[in-house]
């Protein structure tokens, strides 16, 4: 059964089509990732599904509630973890959770009990009385997630929750996402980190320029690029000129120069790599480093759009 059914959503800001006919289904109890670079339309999609923005066209059902016709219904089954930390720095973690719990309709003893539970979940029971402004970035992120869990929502949106945090906090958040799924929650997760989508997701929708350009499981998406390897090289001369020359090398499917490195999609790196060295030598260029990666979502995105995920 679908937890979220998105049907042909459109949203434009002036001439900019931020979301252009997006449709997808999220099954109950799964982690569903929206993967795409900055500006792909992920946050706008989440904002419409949170009832913060009204779609120009299309609709979506969240646990059967229409985001157009039954916004209170949507909001009551939903927990939202915004991209930026949205907390009151001058209140303690407990005060923040208590306030947000009240906004979700909790009162009295159940509220206090749930606040205690959430503090336990996010591991901040000992620091509950400290003002959030004194917390580290990772601790704030945990409270930010905790707020969305207070009313035990059926669906939780997490909009790039790991942006700008240290590896340890990131690991904690990824583990907590899996824990939420294990508790039966449906998680809609947006990220521009391919590794996160790959690790967490049951299904992934890849977005670019406001559209879903690919949809499926990780395995299904990787099949799109076949068994192509991703070879990342650095060279001693102008990367753009070298890229042009390598496009005609046998076995090379795609070449892209980015930030002083060259990214090559090739069917078999073992066969192609010697040819690249030879072509480089002919041009008087030295290859100074080589990294080979097996097919992944980054390669899928490169294959579909001609650009890297972090562009």
């Amino acid at each position: 059964m679908s937890a979220i059914e998105v049907k042909n959503l459109h949203k434009a800001f002036g001439d900019l089509k931020a979301v252009d006919g997006v449709s997808f289904d999220v099954q109950q109890g799964e982690i569903f990732s929206l993967l795409g670079p900055n500006g792909a339309g992920k946050t706008t999609t989440i904002s419409m599904l949170s009832c913060l923005l009204r779609p120009d066209q299309g609709d979506a059902l969240v646990m059967g509630h229409s985001i157009k016709a039954d916004q209170m219904g949507v909001k009551s089954v939903l927990g939202v973890v915004p991209q930026e930390i949205a907390l009151y720095n001058d209140l303690s973690a407990r005060e923040n959770l208590t306030f947000w719990g009240k906004m979700y309709g909790l009162r009295g003893a159940p509220l206090k009990q749930r606040v205690d539970e959430v503090l336990e979940i996010i591991g901040l029971t000992e620091r509950a009385k400290d003002r959030v402004g004194k917390y580290s970035g990772g601790m704030k992120r945990r409270v930010n997630i905790g707020v969305a869990l207070l009313h035990k929502p059926q669906v939780i949106y997490m909009d790039e929750p790991t942006v700008g945090i240290d590896p340890q906090s990131r690991r904690n958040i990824l583990d907590s996402v899996v824990a939420l799924k294990n508790q039966g929650m449906t998680v809609l997760y947006t990220t521009h980190y391919m590794e996160e989508a790959q690790e967490l997701s049951d299904h992934i929708a890849i977005m670019d320029t406001g559209k879903v350009i690919a949809y499926g499981t990780n395995a299904e998406l990787v099949k799109i690029v076949g068994q192509m390897d991703r070879i990342t090289l650095t060279v001693s001369t102008d990367g753009g000129r070298v890229a042009e020359a390598w496009k005609v090398v046998k076995g090379v499917k795609q070449v892209k120069a980015e930030d002083g490195t060259l990214v090559v999609l090739a069917e078999d790196s073992n066969q192609v790599l010697p040819r690249l060295f030879e072509a480089a030598s002919t041009q008087g260029t030295r290859i100074t480093s080589v990294t080979i990666q097996e097919p992944n979502l980054e390669a899928v995105f490169l294959h579909l759009t001609g650009k890297a995920l972090r562009d």
């Binding site: 009832c51 909001k75 939202v80 949205a86 009151y88 947000w100 979700y104």
Partner: peptide, 14 residues
């Protein structure tokens, strides 16, 4: 600007 107002609007509060 802090994001707490948009977050309030995602709660079941008019």
């Amino acid at each position: 600007e802090m994001g707490t107002l948009p977050r309030l609007f995602t709660t079941p509060t008019t």
